[in-house]
Design a protein around this nucleic acid. Structure first.
Lengths: 132, 132
DNA sequence: TGTGTGTACTATACCGAATGATACAGTATT
DNA sequence: AATACTGTATCATTCGGTATAGTACACACA
């Protein structure tokens, strides 16, 4: 379900965040589904509970999951606050800009880049939405 | 020319790397151009020379610039080694995957994402290339 | 012989990531 | 009431990367 790469440059708590989001997007987790408890997941991944807790707190801050003492953590319906969307939208622009510059330095052409992006979208977007 | 954001989460030496690459892509720096010396740039940015040196070493490792003792650092002609291209290509795929998943969680539609990417490409790609 | 260049090395300070352990607070079940 | 589960909070500690500081070396050029 969730796998951790010890040698990755991205910290463990971010790997958890990213993989939970990926599972949701790709249909492995649906709205209302219960995700493993802090202690469960820390036991499965052989990492510290505090690290998992940090991931869940950030996921809740982003409106991806909802947590409740004694009950557990559950997948939310997508409902990001406007402020949060602006914040993460700006970050997304910066990352895309960096990615484009990197692609140029790898020798990609503009047309090649566009088709490459299209391929990656088809591979990672998950289920179709209204205008898919 | 190059500006450092002290409060940014990205380390200074990476900011330098990214901005040098951006300058090259956007035409501010061309093949053969001399870039500021380690001590010059560290003086301009009010940072430690070792930090600039680290940036230049990574830029040289990636084949973006060439350095020579006593002469300085100069912009290279793009000639990345095949191994380097594979390494960075894989990294690019991972980043794009993460970016796509993030876009979904921000409520973008597939079509909306594609047009957004197109806009960013037009804004950041720089001069036209063969099939632009 | 100078001056400017990249490079190398050591030492230090700071911060985030991750661990370990303990305790607290709310929920559900028995 | 008791118990077991949940998320949360706090403290201490270790570890690695970032950045600074200072010094020294090797090469190029005038």
């Amino acid at each position: 379900m969730i796998q951790i790469n010890e040698r990755s440059m991205t910290p463990i708590y971010e790997q958890i965040i990213n993989q939970v989001k990926e599972l949701i997007v790709k249909g492995g987790l649906r709205e209302g589904d219960k995700i493993p408890s802090v202690r469960e997941l820390s036991g499965m991944l052989l990492i510290n509970p505090n690290t998992v807790a940090k991931s869940y707190q950030e996921l809740e801050r982003q409106g991806v999951i909802a947590t409740a003492r004694g009950k557990g953590a559950f997948v939310c319906k997508p409902a990001a606050s406007p402020g949060m969307e602006r914040e993460r939208g700006e970050q997304l622009r910066e990352e895309m800009k960096r990615l484009i510059i990197e692609a140029r330095h790898l020798g990609m052409t503009k047309a090649g880049f566009k088709t490459w992006v299209t391929d990656e979208v088809e591979r990672n977007w998950g289920e179709q939405d209204a205008d898919g």
